[in-house]
Amino acid sequence: MSQVPAELKYAKSHEWARLLPDGRVEIGITDHAQQALGDLVFVEVPETGRVLEAGAACAVVESVKAASDVYAPIAGTVVEGNAELAATPELINQDCYGRGWLIRVQPASPAALDALLSPEAYAAVLASAEA
């Protein structure tokens, strides 16, 4: 069973979002997503300054099996991409909620996270998909 940490918010398309103390939001893919993809071998993150719309493709993660788009769970401006992933994409497999984060964004609205799924709601999405 995949992990769904209680302190994060989620999108149905299997991204997570974490509100950082400075008001920025860290984004990554969930444990379910990394398990489904398998060993990650290539990650492409957007440049700093790029403006993202909620739900738009914002990054690409490729496993040995396939390439997969990552969708921005919230609207905002990219302030940082995880530079470590270029050389070590496997960080996403090893620690998808920690060192395997993808991007940090300045949210367009302080209330952006409110529209996302709670851990309970995301776990229910997973349960119904696996049923």
Binding site: G38, D39, V64, K65, N93
Partner: peptide
């Protein structure tokens, strides 16, 4: 194993890490 469809068969694609 993680199972996937291979030509109409339900087959193992990996048992954890394909690279390993």
């Amino acid at each position: 194993a993680r199972m996937v469809d291979f030509g109409g068969w339900d087959m193992p694609v990996n048992y954890g890490s394909q690279i390993e």
